[in-house]
Design a protein around this nucleic acid. Structure first.
Length: 273
DNA sequence: GCGACAG
DNA sequence: ATCTTGTCGC
């Protein structure tokens, strides 16, 4: 797929001040509200009929393999692996449970990891992988933060705005913001805790909800517990819908399927590299 | 000065 | 993110 906003392509040679200025422009262009054509309720790992089973589905529909999944949104997962100074970015596109396409790209990492500037380290490899992608996903899951970011322009926002594609940030740790409830306790599976902007989020006017901690998986009979995912809007999606879509694509694992499969693919590419 | 800090 | 064996629990 193509780059829609070339002026936002991450340039690792920029100064820190220039990178931060670019992020403020990106946050300005970002849309943290649902702005997509597909039906979010149609995003599921089940068949195209959603909650319907074969038995309750009309035979004419059940037998029609030609249009099967035609209304199923394409969900892509992106993840990176690293080898020395090279980044491997892998993308997996799913329609329901079916893998529609997989691509990857390898690009040198020009700068070290700096909290808040992740997209300038990994963005090049990610955009290179997207340029090789044939399908245009309805929404993309990016590993890292979206709106939960000092300038509300995390990796998911940067990628989403540059490609003008709906994007969600799926992180394993909280970068900034204040959870409404403590996350340092065992939350039940399915629970979500709002994350609101705090003083660290310099571009937030009031205290908006910038994301959710989502407990996509949890042990049921143990004192041990799994940490929640940290989900935030990247572009053209609201915080609530972003959390809904992550839950809808989880299949018994902590990570949603698109992300989990992209992670595994990046690792396998790294293996035979 | 101290603490915090996605991947 | 990455370097890594065994180990606890379902």
């Amino acid at each position: 797929m193509d780059i829609v906003r070339p002026e936002f392509v991450p340039d690792p040679s920029l100064s820190t001040a220039e990178m931060e200025a670019l992020q403020r422009d990106i946050a300005e262009a970002a849309v943290f509200a649902d702005e997509f054509a597909f039906d979010p309720d149609a995003v599921s790992l089940d068949g195209p009929a959603g909650q319907q089973t074969l038995g309750e589905r009309p035979a004419s529909v059940a037998d029609d393999t030609a249009t099967e999944g035609a209304d199923q949104p394409l969900v892509a997962g992106v993840d990176q692996a690293f080898v020395g100074d090279r980044a491997i970015s892998a993308i997996v596109v799913l329609r329901g449970r079916e893998v529609i396409e997989r691509v990857y790209a390898v690009e040198p990492t020009e700068i070290p990891y700096v909290p808040g500037l992740l997209s300038f380290r990994e963005g090049g490899a990610i955009l290179a992988a997207f340029s090789a992608l044939e399908h245009v996903p309805d929404i993309v899951f990016v590993d890292g933060s979206g709106r939960i970011h000092y300038r509300e322009a995390g990796l998911a926002t940067h990628i989403g705005v540059t490609l003008d594609v709906p994007a969600i940030g799926v992180a394993k740790n909280l970068l900034c913001g204040r959870p409404r409830e403590s996350l340092d306790r065992k939350l039940p599976e399915g629970a979500r805790v709002a994350i609101e902007a705090d003083a660290e989020v310099e571009t937030a006017t009031d205290g908006p909800i910038i994301g959710y901690a989502v407990q996509s998986r949890q042990y049921d009979s143990s004192s041990q517990y799994i940490n929640p995912l940290v989900v935030s809007p990247g572009h053209r999606v609201s915080a609530a819908t972003a959390a809904d879509l992550v839950v809808a694509t989880a299949a018994g694992y902590k990570l949603p399927e698109p992300t989990r499969l992209a992670d595994a693919y990046a690792d396998s590419v790294k293996g035979d590299l």
